[in-house]
Design a binder for these strands. Sequence first.
DNA 1: AACTTGACGAGGG
DNA 2: CCCCTCGCCAAGT
Length: 132
Amino acid sequence: MSDQNERHTDVDSPRYRERVYEIVRRIPAGRVMTYGQLAELLGEGYTARTVGFVMHAAPEGVPWHRVINAQGACSTGRVVLPPDKQQRMLEAEGVAFDARARCDLGRYRWTPEEFEDGGAAGDEPQPSLFND
DNA sequence: AACTTGACGAGGG
DNA sequence: CCCCTCGCCAAGT
């Protein structure tokens, strides 16, 4: 065959993006995921940087606002979007943000069940969504 | 082809 | 706990 370089790293390929959107689309309201985690789940040449770039081109129907950085904050202040736009949308879904625009990832971080091995996650054993 | 910027992450002070 | 620096990968110029 002519090509031997079938790279999944083709961010230019819709297939590459769709895989990211597919997971993001499954994120329930009131939950968030980090770029790094998405990259970790997808593996194959997916990195936080690339995922972020793909998310930049997220079409409607994809809750891109539920994807934040590992700091639990939104990085949208670097783009044309309003600085607190994403935070506002998450707050509307029940996500509480700190005065520094940061939320508790250990509480809101969500993982697809097909990636949940043996139940429970490896970072927080019992996410108490009750008030403190 | 090389340099710079960018929806990031982890580590160090 | 907060701020700064380095590293990564890809796109744009």
